[in-house]
């Protein structure tokens, strides 16, 4: 396979995953701010910007932080790279470049998601906002399904690799920012908690029900962290993303007959995470842990690019 093709597929996976994540984040934040019993207000939107690392870019627009403008910024604003529309645009451009490697079904899902934003200038009412992000999620599910019906070969593996690396990054950021806001320094884990805020985290990674199934003690921050960090059963957890990365790299290595730097880094990371106890991480500093994880993920991204000679 051409390196450029592989690179396009990988980036297609990353961008589509990122668009999906932002859609979930917006949805959960709308619920937190507008639909909960105690509107969280500006702080909720500020944290949504922080999770996507777009707080500085937003500040530059000079607009005060509020639902309508942040939603517009995160979904429709084509002028900064962290919006859904830009992510979909990038995903579609990469898909176009490898159009013939994709099935019609997977291309259609990308194209339809992209078309959702055509001629849309404002985010509209809260209902309209929720409809929009719901539509993005639907196309994303369609894409996921389409990929699983494609031939199990390098094409799907590179898309999945991009998704896994992106997902690991997104979940780590989500956890880091929310935890930071929810537990300002000095506050004890296990004190009175803001149920709505913690539910938001679970919503963003589609884990509200999963959490109920797996933990019996009601909503406890330590359990939420455990779920997102260490439980490979949850597809969007760090553990699952890390495992998926190793698996996909393995499939690629079998096909190309080449192991490299990226394989070694991914395996090392997986075995380390396998031994990690979330309780210990919390005790020794979740923020530091997550920052290190995000950095390591970026290094792995670089190693993948080198190993497969991305252009």
């Amino acid at each position: 396979m051409l390196s450029r093709t592989a690179s396009s597929l990988y980036w297609l996976g990353r961008y589509f995953e990122r668009a999906d994540f932002i859609a979930r984040l917006v949805e959960a934040t709308v619920r937190l701010d507008v639909l909960s019993s105690q509107p969280a207000g500006e702080a909720a939107w500020a944290s949504a910007l922080a999770v996507t690392e777009t707080d500085e870019a937003f500040a530059k627009t000079g607009v005060p932080v509020g639902q309508r403008d942040v939603v517009r910024f995160l979904t429709l604003d084509a002028s900064h790279p962290g919006s859904i529309v830009r992510c979909l645009d990038m995903a579609r451009n990469n898909a176009k470049a490898v159009r013939t490697a994709l099935t019609r079904e997977s291309w259609t899902a990308i194209n339809r998601a992209w078309l959702l934003f055509e001629n849309r200038a404002t985010p509209g009412s809260t209902t309209a906002q929720l409809n929009l992000v719901e539509a993005v999620k639907t196309e994303s599910r369609g894409f996921e399904g389409a990929i699983h019906r494609m031939l199990r070969n390098q094409t799907t593996w590179f898309i999945r690799l991009g998704q896994a690396v992106e997902r690991a990054d997104n979940t780590a950021r989500l956890l880091d920012v929310k935890y930071h806001i929810l537990l300002p320094e000095g506050q004890k884990l296990g004190g009175a908690i803001d149920r709505d805020q913690w539910t938001t985290i679970l919503q963003t990674v589609s884990a509200v029900t999963a959490y109920r199934w797996m933990y019996n003690d009601g909503l406890r921050p330590a359990d939420v962290i455990d779920l997102l960090l260490a439980r490979a059963e949850l597809p969007r957890s760090l553990a699952a993303s890390v495992e998926e990365t190793v698996d996909v790299l393995n499939l690629l290595a079998k096909r190309t007959g080449q192991h490299g730097e990226a394989d070694r880094m991914a395996r090392l990371r997986a075995s380390r995470l396998g031994r990690t106890r979330s309780g210990e991480v919390i005790a020794s500093g979740l923020h530091q842990y997550l920052q290190a994880f995000i950095q390591e993920n970026a290094l792995l991204h670089g190693a993948i690019g080198r190993q497969f000679k991305f252009l």
Partner: peptide, 15 residues
């Protein structure tokens, strides 16, 4: 995707 080296044309693949 193409690179010329030593007057020979190559394509860059993942392998």
């Amino acid at each position: 995707d193409l690179v010329v080296d030593d007057d020979v044309v190559w394509m860059r693949t993942i392998a």
